[in-house]
Write a protein that binds this DNA or RNA. Structure first.
Lengths: 249, 249
DNA sequence: AATTTATTTGCAAAATATTGCAATAATGTT
DNA sequence: AACATTATTGCAATATTTTGCAAATAAATT
């Protein structure tokens, strides 16, 4: 068994399951662990893999933070995002609030959609950074570091200067009698304004937030034109909203 | 199970549901909580997540990539940044323009400095995300995707609502007779406003921009109170500005 | 203040790396 | 073909790193 042969086997192994261990290879190749170690070193020097204590791992093709982002797309959010797309038409001005659901929507906007997105969410703006045709207006204000959105009266004023066609809410709690509520006071104030300046309002939600309430009031459920969830519109939990004349998707 | 494997699992877990707990991971990975803690520390050091008591949470959804967009010329920017720090005092309201020099300043602000930073630059805001005591006001407006700053009249209006103690300009061209100029029209308009609303203005520069001019005019050099460069203040290229009464550092 | 819970620190045992060296194999030179 | 030269390999002695444990701190909770 010559070295080149071993190197190839090691590479194959790494590309197959992203890691190899010294002991394992030593046995498989009938050479000492030292030799395997040295082989790995050669490959690591060529940047073909990354040597780690006890073996080697594949050279990650993309930096970690990207990788982390892609997993962020849980199935249900993709479902919701795809449902939203049918509401978006070229030329519209659309408000996006902060939140992972709206972020998922922003990330999945088709490349040829020409809308103007107005948002107070850095992640949303950031997701649209590379989008070729979407115009982004960022509503400034005091930076709320934990959620990376802006809040406060400057943000509210920024929204007040907009007339939007559509407003997309991330997940808040909705309850037929109590109305739309959220956990954060500032967030509630901003959402009130977003509803005010939009012709139409869509709320994204998951089943666990339906028929629940949080501390801060945004408005009655009748402010919502449409509720989009990850489940079938026929779900019985949603019937109360249908009766209230809300479009359930 | 090698360490790299564990790190990957932890990252995946965090990106999936935004948090992990020590006990949970300890069991899943068959290692002690201490080891998990140390693993998390490693990841936290790389800014891939944030360690918290009892586990870890996902780092901000904002991708890092523009935080680290231009890594080059770090040395001279660090020099400049350190010179700036002596101008910053607790309680001040400071305007930061977009640009890699001001970004370097933002990144090197000491942890106990309590100032309010007003900026139209996403990278600057992002760099201050983890800063414990700096308040950030973001000047909203139309997103200028290539530099990831906001521009336009909304941005200018946002700055007009501020009275700042200090304004820190990134690198523009300066010329004793022609004045302060820059390559971009929108940028020039915003910088004019920034000067207007600030008591004091500091320009960061490198030697290659001194005695040069670009297409768009911001104002006469006398608008500048201080010029900070990466070279000695005694450099003869700078003498004209000293004579104009500008503080050279 | 008392109690629980989590973190830090020092430490020792285990696992893994490094280094020098000798034996062997491969290669080149006359 | 015989010889010298060089590279590869395994081994052993010696570092270094990782890991879990326990005691001491620190932080949150009651």
């Amino acid at each position: 068994m010559v070295r080149e042969e071993r190197l190839q086997i090691i590479l194959d192994h790494v590309s197959k399951d992203n890691k190899v261990m010294l002991a394992e290879l030593s046995e498989k190749l009938n050479v000492s662990e030292d030799t395997v170690r040295r082989d790995i070193k050669v490959l690591a020097d060529q940047k073909l893999l990354t040597a780690v204590r006890g073996g080697a791992v594949a050279h990650s093709p993309i930096p970690h933070h990207y990788r982390a982002r892609e997993k962020h797309d849980i199935a249900s959010k993709k479902v919701i995002a795809s449902k939203v797309l049918s509401f978006l038409k070229d030329g519209q001005v659309v408000l996006f609030d902060g939140g992972t659901s709206t972020l998922a929507v922003a990330e999945s906007l088709p490349d040829d959609l020409r809308i103007t997105v107005v948002t107070n969410s850095f992640p949303v703006a950031s997701a649209l950074e590379d989008h070729p045709t979407v115009e982004v207006i960022f509503a400034g204000g005091r930076l709320y570091k934990s959620s990376f959105t802006t809040i406060g009266h400057e943000t509210i004023n920024a929204f007040r200067n907009i007339r939007a066609d559509l407003c997309i809410f991330g997940i808040c709690s909705v309850h037929p009698a109590i109305g739309i509520t959220t956990r954060d006071y500032e967030e509630a104030e901003i959402k009130k304004t977003m509803i005010e300046v939009s012709k139409e309002t869509i709320a994204l939600s998951t089943l666990e937030k339906i028929n629940k309430a949080d501390s801060y009031y945004i408005g009655p459920v009748t402010e919502l034109d449409t509720i989009i969830t990850d489940v079938s519109p026929d779900n019985e939990e949603l019937s109360a909203y249908k009766e209230a004349g809300i479009n359930i998707i």
